[in-house]
């Protein structure tokens, strides 16, 4: 049961004829060759297909394309250009926020949508007060990004990347401090003169 619809994908007008059963994800990937959003679970659980639909992050595998005739769709590929990456894209590169990369376009779209929600003051499950402005702590980032799974387990660097994108200056200071700590001399086991007991005496030396 075909219907003609028009989507505006990453700024381009894309008329397309779809069967009513076609999800937005399948319309993008299979009909329009927009392969940035990925199919993971196809049940809205993994977040790999996340796009910005009329500016809000959604899982495109649970959206019927016919229901969004005329909609604006932004994928990770449409967020920046080759010459100038979106700050969230640049942060994922700087902080090594991925391994295999399959979940990355969804992570990036989700992060962009999430940061906008935080900017508007939308609280989360871990917000101490529903009415306070949102500060994107690690705990807040983790909670707000819980709809995006990463099977490689790159979560630590994904959080760092989003931290950087949300507050570049604070993250720069944090990284510089971590770098200094890494360069401080550390007493290693093989430096210990006689006994292991000396070198494993506590956390302070690390």
């Amino acid at each position: 049961m075909d219907q003609n619809i028009t989507l505006y994908v990453d700024g381009n007008r894309r008329p397309v004829t779809v069967d009513t059963r076609t999800t937005l994800l399948d319309a993008l990937r299979d009909r329009l060759d927009v392969t940035s959003p990925k199919k993971g679970c196809d049940h809205g659980q993994c977040g790999a297909c996340t796009v910005l639909l009329n500016g809000r992050r959604v899982t495109s595998c649970l959206v019927l394309a016919v229901a969004y005739d005329g909609a604006d769709v932004t994928t990770a590929a449409g967020l920046g250009s080759d010459d100038e990456l979106h700050p969230v894209q640049q942060a994922f590169l700087d902080r090594d926020g991925f391994q295999c990369g399959y979940c990355t376009p969804g992570q990036i779209c989700s992060a962009v949508g999430m940061m906008e929600e935080a900017e508007r003051g939308s609280p989360s499950h871990v917000s101490a007060n529903l009415n306070d402005p949102v500060e994107l702590t690690d705990e807040e980032i983790r909670e707000r990004m819980s709809g995006n799974l990463c099977r490689c387990g790159a979560y630590v660097n994904i959080v760092a990347a989003i931290r950087q994108a949300a507050d570049p200056e604070a993250e720069q200071i944090r990284q510089a401090r971590a770098e200094r700590q890494r360069n401080e001399p550390v007493l290693r086991e093989d430096d210990a003169p006689t006994s292991y007991q000396v070198s494993v005496s506590g956390e302070e030396g690390r």
Binding site: G44, G47, R57, G113, M114, E117, H125, L130, N131, G147
Partner: peptide, 27 residues
């Protein structure tokens, strides 16, 4: 996120925020 829900019916805001993911709550 609605101001009146947050102020007058915080139990409802808390319950909504405890459910699903950011993407699903948007839909």
């Amino acid at each position: 996120a609605h101001p009146l829900i947050r102020r007058r019916y915080p139990v409802l805001a808390e319950a909504l925020l405890a459910g699903a993911s950011g993407q699903l709550r948007n839909m």
